[in-house]
Nucleic acid binder design. Structure first.
Lengths: 144, 144
DNA sequence: TTTAATGCAAACATTTTGCACCCTG
DNA sequence: CAGGGTGCAAAATGTTTGCATTAAA
């Protein structure tokens, strides 16, 4: 099931929060290009480029709401700031991060998910979520 | 093979850098308690408690050297700062991080490492390193 | 004695917050 | 029109850097 803006609306209404123009714009920026993994600054710059009047503060506040809602995840790509991606309902996935060009590819493997679930069982650890970052060189960069 | 201070000395000498008292102290702090995963601030506080005269700046500078040397890794435990651990020669491992008490357990599984290597091959991605964080509740906290 | 290392304070980068004004419901 | 939302500027964090001084080699 694909998450859409209505899910964010429900989340906000359920907490007595308001559905605003700015929140919709930020939501759009993340969901319209799911492979981009933008950070707060990038979202800000894109909205400014589209002549929207927003502030970084609001972007951070909205990102926090989106993460709390479960519709968006923060991902660590080895930089000193967070990146954000839509959280679709699908097998958990990891990221391949190119140390040369910075390109990010996703992957998902049942076997890894299963192995992690087995580890949780063994150690009596109740799983919530996990993240995997694989660093290296993508096909294009590795060939050089 | 277990890494020891001599390895750090070789690294430093090989680059024309100096083996100093402060660098030894910081190295010790990380290697003496490998399960601690301290952050820069914690290392600083422990050394101050031991009446050592150090600055956070030197700790950060030394941590950067240790990471470059490959003797120490920076690990992301979901907080807004890095933690550090000795990088022993062993199968790559992941961390189970308790969202309630913050305790960190390690795990390692050949099958995960193999799966990631297979993914690299498939995508023509030349692997360098990977990290896995599993968030959830440890046995003690989960029972409550 | 030469060159790197250190502590300190200032600079940085990212993210959060206080406040006066604005907009949604 | 009441209460949350917003932009702006200031604050809070974590980390890095410039500089004068100290200490390895």
């Amino acid at each position: 099931m694909k998450k859409r803006f209505e899910d964010f609306e429900s989340f906000l209404r359920g907490r007595g929060l308001k559905v605003t123009r700015t929140r919709a714009l930020i939501f759009e920026e993340i969901f319209a290009a799911p492979t981009v993994h933008p950070n707060a600054e990038e979202i800000y710059r894109k909205l400014v480029a589209k002549k929207k009047r927003v502030s970084l503060a609001t972007i951070y506040r909205t990102l926090n709401l989106l993460v709390k809602s479960g519709l968006v995840s923060a991902v660590d790509l080895g930089e000193d700031h967070s990146h954000f991606e839509p959280e679709w309902d699908r097998t958990a996935h990891g990221h391949l991060i190119c140390l040369s060009c910075g390109r990010v590819q996703e992957f998902s493997r049942e076997e890894i998910q299963d192995a992690i679930e087995r580890i949780g069982k063994e150690k009596g650890f109740e799983l919530d979520k996990f993240s995997i970052q694989v660093f290296g060189f993508c096909q294009a960069c590795g060939k050089k």
